[in-house]
Design a binder for these strands. Structure first.
Lengths: 250, 250
DNA sequence: GTGCATGGTTGACCTGCATCAATGTCGCAG
DNA sequence: CTGCGACATTGATGCAGGTCAACCATGCAC
């Protein structure tokens, strides 16, 4: 369980090996609440209030935050690491519907049951808000609810973009769009670096893009041959951003 | 502009030919506001209030309710007919992200710009709420906002299901899931009938399922050969619901 | 009636990606 | 060190679904 961590962000706040824990454990006490995404809608006092509602918690790679169809008893705000969100078909086929990064909310729809399963990709930290407490707090703060609703709208928009990708685009376009999108998201949360880190496995990428690991691998190789990017262990160095973006937008 | 209408629901409230109009026109005066989906969250007085904020309006087949990237100046609640929601790629490839039926909301995210384009499939009626007015009203009714938020969560869930379909399922499974899903939605709004009406074109179905018209057509033929359904003009008669559902769930 | 446009079906063929299989690499256990 | 398991790459082959093309049915204009 405790092993040298392959962190998603080597330079910033490396995860200490052996800290893997579940919510409420003592080792989590120092996790900092970072309500990155909604803080704009809250003043200092409210931020402190909502912070007091949360428990910090950590997840080792591969551990589940929650599973599809489970009663949705908590909302999460990822503060560090990466989470994959996926659905399974009865025969085991998997579709990853998204990767959550620091600042992202999970379970925000406040529905009775989780619609997807969530699993830590890397060592991950998150704030956990018991759903009831969170819902009660939100119900008293319309401007916060309004902001959450805008968030949901934004997520829906991303899901629709992904539908275009899955329904109408070639393998190369999918890979390019994936890399460009990930780079933009990392940049937005201040994690841009020379090499784009790809902590998820080829299988994860394939299951996100509706491809197979072999096609993902071959496409990376092809893009490398075309001098668009350079595949490195756990990441990629984008050599020709313009070209990559051109492929990404179709 | 005015032509004999191919209605989505032949038996119930046929659309009178020649009534095609844009919002605000006199011919729309008799459109009834049906806030099917949210009315559970509103009492009689509130229902009257919100009704007074809306204009009824009609759309002829192929006419646009709004376009992607346009300023989102209105929210719509479809009351009759069918609307396709889609995104276009620069080269013209189209992905339909959903079909809106009576009771469905459009533009509910209350974002600044529409994320998709919306076009009437059949003669369509809708309630139009100016966005500013709607947003102001909603901001004063937290329980309504809460309900809208749940709605958005439900839509996100549907979008994720569609991602699974587009990323991981065969043509036959897509068609089956599409028919089963449509039948369930029609049943929920009381439009179930012996033959499932399919007012949208083959191209629409193809662009929704990430296929080509030829594959859609062939798959219908195959399902007909297998005695699962019977394709009729503008619709399908499901002969073997159990089998169809089995295919649909994978 | 003819001519034309639109939409759907069917067949023949092609190809992009999946499948199957072999091989390489790394990290870890013993 | 050897052996093993997880993961990635690469090649050979297959096939589901795309592409191209012919054809038919319907509806409308004239």
């Amino acid at each position: 369980m405790a092993q040298a961590a392959t962190t998603s962000t080597p330079p910033t706040s490396p995860v200490v090996p052996g800290m893997a824990c579940q919510h409420g454990r003592a080792a989590c006490a120092d996790c900092k609440v970072r309500l990155l995404s909604v803080c704009a809608a809250l003043n200092e006092q409210e931020l402190a209030e909502i912070e007091s509602l949360s428990q910090s918690c950590c997840f080792a790679p591969r551990s589940a935050l929650f599973s599809q169809e489970q009663p949705a008893d908590a909302v999460f705000n990822v503060t560090e690491g990466m989470v994959r969100l996926y659905k399974l078909l009865p025969d085991g086929r998997r579709q990853i519907v998204g990767f959550a990064l620091p600042g992202d909310f999970l379970g925000l729809a406040l529905l009775d049951r989780y619609g997807v399963s969530a699993e830590a990709v890397t060592e991950t930290r998150a704030c956990r808000f018991p759903r009831k407490t969170f819902a009660e707090y939100v119900d008293e703060k319309p401007h916060l609810l309004r902001r959450l609703h805008e968030f949901a709208g934004h997520e829906l928009s991303l899901a629709q973009d992904q539908m275009v990708l899955l329904g109408r685009r070639s393998a190369e376009e999918r890979i390019a769009a994936f890399l460009v999108g990930l780079r933009e998201r990392l940049a937005r949360i201040g994690q841009s670096s020379v090499t784009l880190s790809l902590p998820m496995s080829r299988q994860d990428i394939a299951d996100f893009l509706g491809l197979t690991i072999e096609t993902v691998s071959r496409t990376f190789t092809k893009l490398a041959k075309d001098k668009v990017l350079l595949v490195v262990p756990d990441g990629a160095r984008i050599m020709n951003p313009e070209r990559l973006e051109a492929i990404a937008r179709g």
